[in-house]
Design a binder for these strands. Structure first.
Lengths: 126, 126
DNA sequence: GATGTATATAAACATAAGCTTATATAATGA
DNA sequence: TCATTATATAAGCTTATGTTTATATACATC
């Protein structure tokens, strides 16, 4: 039990992995999207994801040649986390360390539809 | 904010420090008592305590030549922890990894009074 | 089937982290 | 004062961790 707790805490106690979890808590993302968002090398993302997978903190879904990841809510809430709510729920504006990352996140191709939708809605609203 | 979170998680993601916190959550202890309970070297205890102190996870109280430590409830609950309740509140019997440590803990000189008291109570009860 | 894209993995390296042994500092007590 | 006890710190060592670069694998598309 302690071993698993330590493993999870170790997995969480790393800035890059914490950032990855932050984004995966908002939206399912693939390696290439995380690579783009965080602006780090693809192997670096893959290796961190590997650590998170081993602890059960993220779940994987394969679609064609892509691997999508999302946070494992059960583990994140139940096992050790819960207190990260403050961090995970905090507004992006309250996380200055991730300003650039958030900017790139919003510019992802997969988020363009949403933005287009919002644009439409805005027009409709007017 | 992320930095502090990472620091706390790193401090927590180490079995010896987690054990130290477990004991300090139950009772204020000095270095020499922790050394005895965990059966590890005194410098090792001091070095781990240093890490915990830097993150604010434990508070220090000096009395004569001894330094007593206790968990900083505010940090432990508020900042990042809360989910450790399960671990910290779990019965010693549910933590087989710390069986020997608990045995030595109960045999601390500072705990003898309590045991004597219990013995008296038992005699009185009979 | 060749090319490109997505991901994983391996090798090499640098740094960090944890441990032991030795020693320093400080307070206590005979 | 000298020996003892409690704690901190430093040096040296070993292992773990995170990163880059290079390469392998698998799927997709032309």
């Amino acid at each position: 039990m302690i071993q698993q707790t330590v493993k999870v805490l170790k997995a969480l106690g790393e800035p890059t992995r914490l950032a990855i979890l932050k984004f995966l808590s908002m939206q399912e993302l693939c390696i290439c999207e995380l690579t783009a968002v965080l602006a780090i090398s693809q192997p670096r993302v893959s290796q961190h994801i590997k650590v998170l997978k081993k602890t059960g903190l993220v779940k994987e879904r394969k679609d064609k040649q892509k691997s999508y990841y999302r946070v494992n809510i059960a583990v994140l809430n139940g096992a050790v986390i819960e207190p990260f709510q403050a961090f995970l729920q905090s507004d992006p504006d309250l996380l200055p360390e991730l300003t650039e990352e958030f900017q790139r996140f919003r510019q992802l191709d997969s988020n363009q539809e949403v933005q287009d939708c919002k644009a439409e809605c805005r027009i409709t609203a007017i």
